[in-house]
Design a protein around this nucleic acid. Structure first.
Lengths: 353, 353
DNA sequence: AGAGGCATTGCAAACGTTTGTGTAAAGTGC
DNA sequence: GCACTTTACACAAACGTTTGCAATGCCTCT
């Protein structure tokens, strides 16, 4: 009775008669056959649509599923239901390491909404790798896309917008184009960093390693300029050393300042840049913080790894992650959002006498 | 002629008449209708199956696809072809940070084979999060699974093996169970680290922060013991301070050693642990490397971030990544594989006089 | 006892692809 | 001008699900 071999219309190029023979994964139909019910019923009990099946059948089906080691084919299900519960996070593999707390935030909030998270790497500034990551997520049913500080090439942005999948940028901002993003107020980041140093009596303050090619960096520089201007200090051109936020950028910035820079404080464009500044400064003979105060921007764990531990203007990356998925779960909100920043004091700042 | 409205059997609950009305993504059928050919033909030209269509038709189809902004639904395609070109990497979100070079290796080699990579986070030792990550990849068509130093709970390993998806562990090893893995020879790691220090004249050598709960850690300890024994040195129990490879583990280990430990050299179980040792040692009044040599294990970029830069027994994580996808692309090879290690000298070692 | 309701299940369409088979029309050789 | 091959395409099945609808049987009410 249980092992009846009625098996519908026979395929032409593949006979599906005995499906437990080889390694072919068990399907809902196999369960149906084993349990002696229809595939539809199996689907219903497995989806726990209570009220649509009797307890005895439920048991039979569950037993059969267990025996066959059934694993659902979600892709097939998503095909018919036309909806997915995975959200994709695309990160650029830049050396600055704030991605991890953002992802933890995404993960936590996503699970709260019963969503699954997949992560894709999009290379550094490689538009080809971006395209690759983008198409792999667009081509399969993802519910939404989060882009962690990736600066999309124009053609890739078009691709993304064309896909009609909801998306949101994280930890990056734009002025020219109108897209949803969540990040810190980068102008405030620059402004408050500078203010912090000014309040400690510093006047000659450097800004090292920020990238003014993008909005984020331009904003930080603008905040810095404004704070300096309000304090009545004229900025020497060499005080602003641009770069790409990396460790190397910090180092080369510091080397450009040189051993007799006249600076008493430096703002690192990122944690990594600040560490670069720190190490290069030491090699130039500076003692930190005695001779030179250093203030990092970001506040990731590396600040606590080096000695002296770096004080920082810290961003709330975790919060960015959760805000990102919230934004995508409850759309209709305004598309730009700001997460708070705060000063975290460690051991790299000192009052300028 | 082009806009004929023959559209097959009408659906009962959803009329698919004009599909460009709302946001519904364009399908192959829409293209077919627009170009005035059959869906099959569209599929063939889009897949570039040359020889199956004439150039004029090819052009018509491509034009229609472009006009509709067509995006392939790979999930649907994978459903019928029964094969996928995505490989999943599952990483645990541990604070030690070697994951990134492994992923870069995976990524590079995968692209060489025209595969796409998705990454999942599996939490730290959270079997529930593991299960979640695992099922999300098992439930959809992935070609193979790489697990980066994740120690799977027993029930989750069963899940994985049951799925019949090829998998390989990276940067972790096992003795009790028989599974494919690629990692460094951890015994050699411990042995060579110790040898390095012995050759520099050290005798009282500590081992800090390794986790002997797992095979990897046990092997490192065993290598250390063997090297010490060969040198005729009896290990004081407190020289071995276990931990979980973290920064904190390194710190507490060093604090356990104390200010008058008698040690002249310490092996950090990981880079992070070594940095923990370094900072704690400084706080205890040690000068590194003058009073105390420190040798890290792993050789990630943090070794170069701290001062003095930490010498290390470096693993080739990138290579692990490429070996992992190679292994899964050309199966039949022996299931365990070893990637080489090497000593990288930086500034944290000094001869013991 | 017949009508109506409800619980349980089967049936079949549909999701968006790929691909084997069938078949006209066009091309080739004699 | 006929048989034969080739070219270019359409047709339809199949992948593994979900779900609206129909069908069956039983229960309850009058």
């Amino acid at each position: 009775m249980l092992f009846q071999t009625i098996n519908g219309k026979m395929g032409l190029n593949k006979k599906n008669g005995e499906s437990e023979v080889a390694g072919m994964a068990a399907t809902i139909k196999d369960i149906a056959k084993l349990a002696g019910v229809s595939p539809g019923t199996v689907s219903r009990v497995l989806a726990n649509k209570t009220g649509f099946f009797s307890e005895p059948t439920g048991e039979k089906v569950r037993a059969a599923a267990a025996e066959l080691g059934y694993q659902k084919n979600t892709a097939a299900a998503e095909l018919v239901t036309q909806q997915s519960n995975v959200v994709a996070a695309i990160v650029n593999s830049t050396k600055t390491n704030f991605a991890s707390p953002i992802i933890e935030g995404i993960q936590a909030e996503a699970h709260r909404h019963d969503l699954n998270v997949i992560i894709l790497y999009a290379g550094d500034d490689d538009s080809e790798q971006q395209r690759r990551a983008l198409t792999t997520v667009i081509e399969r049913p993802v519910r939404s896309i989060l882009l962690l500080s990736v600066d999309l090439a124009a053609e890739n942005l078009a691709l993304l917008q064309n896909s009609r999948i909801p998306f949101c940028f994280l930890s990056i901002s734009f002025d020219e184009i109108q897209v949803p993003y969540i990040t810190s107020d980068d102008w405030q980041v620059g402004y408050q960093a500078t203010q912090t140093l000014l309040k400690l009596g510093h006047q000659n303050i450097g800004l090292a390693g920020v990238d003014s090619d993008f909005h984020t960096g331009r904003q930080r520089v603008a905040g810095y300029r404004q704070a300096m201007q309000e304090a009545g200090i004229t900025i020497q051109p060499k005080w602003i050393q641009l770069g790409n936020y990396s460790y190397d950028a910090g180092q080369t910035a510091m080397q450009a300042y040189g051993a007799d820079s006249g600076l008493t404080a430096i703002i690192g464009g990122s944690d990594m840049a600040a560490v670069g500044v720190l190490n290069a400064a030491r090699n130039l003979g500076y003692r930190v913080p005695t001779d030179l105060s250093i203030l990092a921007i970001d506040g990731t764990e590396i600040c606590e790894l080096v000695q002296p531990a770096l004080s920082s203007i810290s961003q709330n990356f975790y919060e960015m992650g959760v805000a990102g998925v919230q934004q995508l779960c409850a759309p209709g909100e305004l598309p730009q959002k700001i997460t708070p920043i705060k000063l975290v004091e460690r051991d790299s700042l000192q009052r300028n006498s």
